[in-house]
Amino acid sequence: MIEIVDTGPLNTIQDLGRPGYRDIGVTVSGAMDPLALTIANLLVGNDAGAAAVELQTFPVRIRFEQNTAFSVTGGGSAALDGETLPPWWMQIADAGQILEILPSKTSARAYVAFEGGVDVAPVMGSRSTSLRGAFGGNDGRALRKGDVLRLGSPAADVLPAGGFGVVPPLREMASLFPVAENGALLIRALPAGEHDLFGADAERFWTEDWKISAQSDRTGYRLSGNPIRLTEPVEMRSHGIVAGVVQVPPGGEPIVQMSDANTAGGYPKIAGIVEADLWRLGQARIGTRLRFVRATHAEARMLDQAIATYIGDVETTARQVGRALKAMAGR
């Protein structure tokens, strides 16, 4: 068990989400940075999609009730009883130790995974918290000070007593996830249904910088910049949407739907972000500038494959290194 000794608002239990129920209006939810959640889980020997804690407000303090392997990935700067941990790191805590996580300067969200995963009851196949639906996670609500969370049974893998980490994805795959010369995130997207109806404004959508406004949360990011507008009104019928869709309400400032995206939408949509770039957006803080880059299905495939390779390498190598370290320590 672990106890939430201190937490900011809107920190929740998440896994890889609850896909498959959009057709009954159920939001997918899940980690805003699914790559960081996946790696956090692999570091403690869990399945990639085990439930972990997503932190977006800080500081957070977690007390371990017994010896527990844990990992911290994504943003956030972690210390165990005052000892600073390297980023993207797994360590074994002793009973009574306190893990403190402070915000990081560059990334918005930290993921803390525990050996065995957070053991809350799955709802419709997922342990993700749906704040809007008020189900999943811990009673369908954000974590509160004093919450005690049960952990599942650890996998058989023996984790190295001295801890270990991984090279963060932005370092390992730096060339695949570029930023512009002015620091703007380059986010790849494909034109969507109403793209061409924006006329000349559609070109500006791709060439000008957008800023993530303060009206941004797990549901969606409102972007600020020079408004873009349809050349003429269009009839829209409500349709299913996925995270990453870039909609343009009448005001002309785009909205990017994120993990807690509505399941249906009726605003004209100018673009859809490729999934491989969504985790970077999930880690982008309010005020971050970004620019959209027109991509193809082939590029999206290549990026998906690169991420899958990175995840596969982490999984295989972590297991091998764990075995090797155990073999040496066992003497």
């Binding site: 969507a192 249904g193 349709h239 299913g240 996925v242 859809g272 999934e275 991509a295 999206a300």
Partner: peptide, 9 residues
């Protein structure tokens, strides 16, 4: 039309 690379409307 496409919504991202994995969904078609």
């Amino acid at each position: 039309s496409a919504i991202g690379a994995r969904a078609f409307l």
